[in-house]
């Protein structure tokens, strides 16, 4: 059986909020290492990969592999019943029909309990190769969100060019064009504001801004985001979560025929 207790319901609320625009139904794969999720969007252009390691929970107990097939709209409805600061416990039997969620207030004696009916989801799993990326950029997640939002006002697509000069996000649209260039930067007062660019060879790729702006819904989960790029392969956008856990998004590029 599964029993997983999170100190703050807020973490799961934010994770689900940030993927619900991309994915409708998905399996939460539980085993002794934690709770993992991998799902593609309907058009098979973007992929979400989440890992909540067992260390992020206290306690965490799961003695065998359990797949919880959950409709994210249903999960969102139930998670709205939790206060952000509530303690959240997920429970399921070994071959479950439902997942049980318990919300406890640390301050009062309130205890809420909900069951969500599970679905049989035949999910296509993709093998993601270990990649040595040619460029990786770590920057404030709010900055990446702002750039994405600003350029989306002008265009559907963004070109991301990374050279030793810096990283340039640029777009061309009907009303004109725009670009934002970032250079490596160390902020002495606040390292959350740092921009670090790690480059082994120049990269230039084009991506859909609609998907990138969807990924940026995860900005509330982490003050930092890491973009990893290599020519002609999918972009990796990664938000670090507590206890070495992560929320990753992959986006296939636009490539000339």
């Amino acid at each position: 059986m599964l029993e997983a207790r999170l100190e703050q319901a807020n973490l799961l609320k934010k994770v689900v909020d940030s993927i619900t625009n991309l994915v409708q139904d998905c399996n939460f794969d539980c085993n002794d290492s934690g709770i993992a999720l991998q799902a593609m969007d309907n058009s098979h252009v973007a992929l979400v990969a989440m890992m909540l390691r067992s260390d992020a929970f206290s306690p965490f107990r799961c003695d065998r592999n359990i797949a919880l097939g959950i409709n994210l709209t249903s999960l969102t409805k139930v998670l709205r019943c939790a206060q952000n600061e509530d303690i959240l416990t997920l429970k399921a039997e070994d071959a479950p029909d439902v997942v049980n969620l318990v919300f406890e207030s640390a301050e009062s004696d309130r205890l809420s309990e909900y069951d969500i009916k599970l679905m049989d989801i035949d999910q296509e799993h993709l093998g993601i190769p270990d990649t040595e990326y040619a460029a990786s950029i770590t920057m404030p997640s709010a900055e990446f969100q702002r750039i994405t939002r600003d350029l989306l006002a002008l265009s559907e697509s963004v070109s991301i060019e990374c050279t030793k000069e810096g990283v340039k996000f640029s777009c061309q649209g009907d009303i004109g064009s725009g670009s934002v260039t970032l250079r490596s930067h160390t902020n002495v007062d606040n390292e959350d504001r740092n921009v670090s660019i790690d480059l082994s060879e120049p990269v230039s790729l084009m991506f859909s801004l609609k998907y990138l702006s969807n990924f940026c819904k995860a900005s509330g989960l982490s003050s930092r985001v890491k973009l990893s790029l290599s020519n002609e392969v999918p972009l990796l956008v990664e938000y670090a979560l507590p206890s070495n856990s992560f929320l990753r998004f992959y986006l296939a590029p636009k490539i000339g025929d």
């Binding site: 993709l126 999918p234 992959y250 296939a252 490539i255």
Partner: peptide, 14 residues
Amino acid sequence: VKTQQMLGKFFGAP
């Protein structure tokens, strides 16, 4: 003209 690729082209079966 650049065309949106699908992930299956890059990521195979596990």
